[in-house]
C-alpha cells in the first residue's frame, strides 16, 4: 500500500473514476472522504483519521467564492497544517469561455489554484477512463 506523507493531487474530467482510483490505490475507505468541503478543525480530522481525502475540490472553491472567501489562501493554510492529504478535483477549464461572469471567474480561479497545488504536490495524476496518468 502506498502511504501519503505529502499532498497528492488527482485531477480529471467528471465521472472518470477519480475517487475510486484513489480509494483503490491507497486502500482507503469512503468514510474518510470530505465531499466539497474541508475539515474545520483537528477534531474533525481525528474523527475520520488521516489521510484527509478532499473530493470535489472544485465545488469547495465555488462555495468559498460564493461566501466571499479566498480559496487561494485558505487551501494553502490548510495544507500548512495537513500536508498529508489527497486532493481530488474536476478539470473544468476545457470548454467555451462562459458568458456569465461568475462562471468565467470560477473556471479561471480553479485553474490557477490547481497550478499552485500542482507546484506544491508531491505527485500529480490525471485520471482518464479510470486510468491514472502520472504527470508529476
Amino acid at each position: 500500500m502506498e502511504s501519503v506523507k505529502k499532498m497528492k493531487l488527482v485531477i480529471g474530467g467528471t465521472a472518470q473514476g477519480k475517487l475510486e482510483y484513489v480509494l483503490l490505490k491507497y486502500e482507503l475507505q469512503k468514510n474518510k472522504v470530505w465531499n466539497g468541503c474541508l475539515p474545520n478543525n483537528t477534531d474533525d480530522i481525528e474523527r475520520k483519521e488521516k489521510p484527509v481525502i478532499i473530493n470535489h475540490f472544485h465545488l469547495w472553491v465555488k462555495s468559498r467564492m460564493i461566501s466571499g472567501g479566498c480559496p487561494e489562501d485558505e487551501i494553502m493554510s490548510f495544507l500548512d497544517c495537513n500536508e498529508d492529504c489527497i486532493i481530488i478535483c474536476d478539470e473544468i477549464g476545457n470548454g467555451i469561455i462562459p458568458i456569465e461572469p461568475f462562471e468565467r471567474e470560477y473556471r479561471e480561479r480553479v485553474g490557477r489554484i490547481l497550478v499552485q497545488l500542482a507546484k506544491r504536490a508531491e505527485e500529480v495524476e490525471r485520471i482518464i477512463c479510470g486510468m491514472g496518468q502520472k504527470i508529476k
Binding site: E91, G93, N94, G95, I97, R104, R107, E108, R109, V110, G111, R112, L114, V115
Partner: peptide, 8 residues
Amino acid sequence: VGGSGSGK
C-alpha cells in the same frame, strides 16, 4: 494548448 487558467 490548455484550458482556462491552466498556465499555458
